[in-house]
């Protein structure tokens, strides 16, 4: 479409304006501010006069063992929940794709956890995984798997395990819907040709299905990684970072430092380190995916 007349130019500008304004004001400005804050001494007592202190916040963050605990926790959370969500989601998608009746019903019911809010889901999990809760009773008195109650919420790795189970439970439905759509795009004649060649189900999966949905896999991988780094509400509700910050993730630690101790400069530095890490990981993921493509091409 041409933009010759002045009237049209003005109208284009008017359409662009609200978006630009909101975007600049509420997103771009905070990003710049975050960057500046991370180089400033900025706490409760100096809220109004901030002093430039160079890299001191970053030094403080990198020397802080609680930061590294939260960093490790976040990485572990992401490394565990992302692949499991993808594998289980893909598995369910394949199952749903293979049935004719009740496809919609299964899709809808599997999607329920996704639309349940994080606050509510976390509270349910906290209640179920309580040391005296239903799950422990089931494990010890019905299944007799353990002799005594498992203290799920009381230590670092078991507490994180609960948060990870929640993350996976809540994520499968989303993965399923995305993968289901991708599966339905894979041309049927490829499968038919493979069947003539005598491929079994597993061979078909690796030779046709996976290459057919690799774009979706990459997309899901990137999105879930961002989601994994974003874990916040579940940790805050389930363990609250206890015992003594051992189950904190980057964001809950950042939030604690900012809003409980007032170290806004420190928190800004933590946020920036996280954004930086995510950026690096995104680049790495795209690269890894491209390499695998090449390998696949060579094999094929």
């Amino acid at each position: 479409m041409k933009t010759k007349s002045n009237k049209n130019k003005i109208q284009i500008f008017l359409l662009l304006l609200p978006g630009l304004a909101v975007f600049c004001f509420f997103t771009v400005y905070p990003i710049i501010k975050l960057f500046l804050m991370s180089f400033s001494k900025w706490d409760f007592t100096s809220m109004r006069q901030q002093e430039f202190i160079g890299l001191q916040n970053y030094r403080e963050v990198l020397a802080d063992k609680f930061f590294w605990t939260s960093f490790t926790n976040t990485i572990v959370y992401t490394l565990v929940t992302v692949p499991l969500q993808m594998i289980l989601g893909l598995f369910v998608a394949i199952l749903v794709n293979g049935i004719k009746k009740f496809q919609v019903t299964f899709r809808v019911l599997n999607y329920l956890p996704v639309i349940t809010s994080w606050v509510i889901a976390s509270l349910i999990f906290r209640y179920v995984f309580n040391t005296e809760g239903l799950l422990n009773y089931f494990l010890s008195q019905v299944l007799h798997v353990t002799a005594s109650n498992i203290r799920w919420l009381d230590s670092r790795w078991s507490g994180l395990t609960v948060a990870m189970i929640l993350g996976i439970w809540k994520g499968i439905g989303w993965n399923m819907v995305i993968f289901l759509a991708a599966l339905q795009q894979v041309p049927i004649d490829l499968y038919e040709a493979a069947a003539i060649d005598g491929c079994n189900g597993i061979q078909k999966f690796f030779k046709i299905t996976l290459p057919g949905i690799k774009g979706t896999i990459l997309f899901v991988w990137v999105m879930l990684t961002i989601g994994g780094f974003n874990v916040f509400t579940s940790i805050k509700m389930i363990t609250g970072g206890n015992p003594a910050h051992q189950t904190d993730t980057i964001l809950t630690w950042m939030y604690y430092k900012a809003f409980s101790t007032g170290k806004f400069g420190y928190s800004a530095a933590v946020s920036f380190i996280m954004a930086f890490t995510l950026g690096i990981m995104a680049i790495f993921q795209f690269k890894a995916m491209r390499n695998r493509d090449r390998e696949l091409e060579e094999i094929g």
């Binding site: 040391t131 389930i238 206890n242």
Partner: peptide, 16 residues
């Protein structure tokens, strides 16, 4: 003091 423990009032009230 653990996150998974029975809350104080409930634990005391139910003889735990």
């Amino acid at each position: 003091f653990n996150s998974g423990d029975i809350p104080m009032t409930d634990g005391f009230g139910t003889n735990r």
